[in-house]
Design a protein around this nucleic acid. Structure first.
Lengths: 127, 127
DNA sequence: CAAAACAATGGAGTGCAGTCAATGGTTTCG
DNA sequence: CGAAACCATTGACTGCACTCCATTGTTTTG
């Protein structure tokens, strides 16, 4: 598929997709048959981009994501210590989860303190 | 306490603390008695800053954090719809948790696939 | 009290992750 | 075919969240 379709499927802008490609998170093939100018993406790209956006919103940087994806595909750790790298990412994500839960608790308490008075108010209004 | 002590307690740089103060996330009092120039922070500030860093690493922006903290203190929703605001923040954090868990699974699987061959390798080396 | 340590301010600079705009090709469709 | 829709590239630009620097003032301490 071409970039517009992929953009529609994933909700990412064309620019963001091209940006991820420049950063090496995804790859495209030159379209065959036609003039060699449009990017062509395989059917696995939507899923791959969903994995990327998940990882991004879990706090993983584009650079780290590239290391991870490269390794997941080639099995080649490149210049880094892959065990150490993975362990660090894992505890980083575990921290994110821990801290998100704490924040969630605070947000829900704050919201709960709000529900009762607001309900009472709207009941008043309907009387 | 002064900014240096607070910095040591929280692990945040002085600059970051002053930045958060400029953004209205925290407040300081002018020191009493001495020349009116150093910030003085109350004993609740370490805890407050820990809450702030938690929220930050859960993906909440400084601007949103300011809205939240202001409301939590004054009970005044200001110009925003506080119910809607809280609901949006809550589902945003829930998303972060969901996506973090997905990423965590991927990371752990990747790491698990690594453990066995590496163990075998180090056993080889010790033989 | 002098030096060292600490702090304030203002403003410039950095890194990250996109986002936008201009210009010019390519496809598709009525 | 020709207009509309789609795509490419380059490079500048933006917003966020800090971070650094230079200068100047304050406190602490040996």
């Amino acid at each position: 598929m071409r970039i517009g379709a992929l953009s529609a499927l994933t909700g990412l802008s064309r620019d963001t997709i091209r940006f991820y490609e420049r950063q090496g998170l995804i790859a495209s093939a030159a379209a065959t048959g036609k003039a060699n100018t449009y990017r062509h993406y395989g059917d696995d790209l939507p899923e791959r981009l969903r994995m990327i956006t998940d990882a991004r919103s879990a706090g993983m940087s584009v650079a780290d994501l590239k290391l991870l994806l490269t390794f997941m595909e080639s099995g080649d750790p490149g210049a880094i210590n892959i065990n150490e790298f993975l362990d660090q990412r894992i505890s980083q994500v575990e921290d994110t989860i821990r801290q998100s839960r704490k924040l969630l608790k605070t947000l829900k308490l704050t919201r709960a303190a709000l529900v009762v008075p607001m309900d009472a108010y709207s009941e008043d209004e309907n009387r």
